[in-house]
Simulated scan of single mutants.
Amino acid sequence: MRKEPRQARSRATVEMIIEAGARILSNEGWAGFTTNKVADTAGLSVGSLYQYFPDKLSLIEAIRRRHLNDCLAVMRKCQIEGLTAAQFVANLVQGMIAAHSTCPGLHRVLLDDAPIFDGYMNPNSTFEVEYLAYYEKAVATYRRRELDMIDRTAALLISDAIDGVIHNAARRGTLRDPAVQSELIRLVSLYLADGGEVAAP
């Protein structure tokens, strides 16, 4: 961003811009995404938009960052302790689906069309570290042991399974399909509670 919003009014303006940008990406795709359209949708002049975002690439970065923060917020809200694996996974999957349902077309654009900055591919980014640590904690809790290499791989696969199914459902327009939700919950909860033993060949 060109400058960080410090006052409540400035923060509200930035949120309006990001929300308008997300709606345009969802409805019109990357080809229809312009700063003029975003400013008009937000009810602002394009000059006001440029006070915070120098170009549409910086705005895309802010939209993607907000989405990642929304996902982390879901995870922080979904407690692990005191729940069965199925209850925990149901809460998590339902929360993630809700986070992806506000602007369902947005995620296809972010995944397939919009430029991706190098920082989002970094496996050691702050987001990735917290994200995977959450799944590792879940595996350790439901398998009732200290994590070994197989468990850490399991945590990575669980995160990829949830991401992959939800992102592809967003692409296909099936996020609200009850079967997608119930089968994803069943898949992940059964694997999460599995001991992780490798069958003999």
Rank of each mutant, 00 (worst) to 15 (best):
Gly43Met: 08
Leu44Pro: 11
Leu44Cys: 07
Leu44Ser: 04
Val46His: 08
Gly47Asp: 00
Ser48Phe: 00
Tyr50Arg: 10
Tyr50Asp: 07
Gln51Asn: 09
Gln51Thr: 10
Phe53Pro: 00
Phe53Thr: 07
Leu57Cys: 00
Leu57His: 09
Ser58Leu: 00
Ser58Asp: 11
Leu59Gln: 07
Ile60Cys: 08
Glu61Cys: 07
Glu61Leu: 04
Ile63Lys: 05
Ile63Glu: 03
Arg64Val: 09
Arg64Lys: 02
Arg65Glu: 10
Arg65Thr: 11
Arg66Ile: 01
Leu68Thr: 00
Asn69Pro: 02
Asp70Val: 03
Asp70Arg: 06
Asp70Asn: 12
Cys71Ala: 07
Ala73His: 03
Ala73Cys: 03
Val74Pro: 04
Met75Ala: 07
Arg76Ser: 12
Arg76Cys: 10
Lys77Leu: 06
Cys78Tyr: 03
Gln79Thr: 13
Ile80Leu: 09
Ile80Val: 15
Ile80Tyr: 06
Ile80Gly: 10
Glu81Lys: 07
Glu81Asn: 10
Glu81Ile: 08
Glu81Gly: 10
Thr84Trp: 12
Ala85Phe: 05
Ala86Asn: 04
Gln87Val: 07
Gln87Phe: 08
Val89Cys: 02
Asn91Glu: 14
Asn91Leu: 14
Leu92Gln: 07
Leu92Phe: 10
Leu92Pro: 00
Val93Ala: 09
Val93Arg: 02
Gly95His: 07
Met96Ala: 04
Ile97Gly: 00
Ile97His: 00
Ile97Tyr: 01
Ala98Met: 02
Ser101Tyr: 02
Ser101Pro: 10
Thr102Cys: 12
Thr102Phe: 09
Thr102Asp: 11
Cys103Ile: 11
Pro104Gln: 14
Gly105Trp: 10
Leu106Pro: 12
His107Gly: 03
His107Ile: 01
Arg108Ala: 15
Val109Pro: 14
Leu110Ala: 12
Leu110Ile: 13
Asp113Ser: 15
Ala114Arg: 14
Ala114Cys: 13
Ala114Ser: 15
Ala114Met: 13
Pro115Asn: 09
Ile116Trp: 12
Ile116Tyr: 13
Phe117Arg: 14
Gly119Asn: 01
Tyr120Trp: 14
Tyr120Pro: 00
Met121Tyr: 06
Met121Phe: 06
Asn122Pro: 05
Asn122His: 12
Pro123Gln: 13
Asn124Met: 15
Asn124Phe: 15
Ser125Asp: 09
Ser125Lys: 11
Phe127Leu: 05
Glu128Ile: 00
Glu128Val: 00
Glu128Arg: 01
Val129Pro: 04
Val129Ser: 05
Val129Ile: 12
Val129Phe: 03
Glu130Ser: 04
Tyr131Pro: 02
Tyr131Trp: 14
Tyr131Gly: 03
Leu132Ile: 11
Leu132Asn: 04
Ala133Met: 02
Tyr134Phe: 15
Tyr135Leu: 07
Glu136Arg: 15
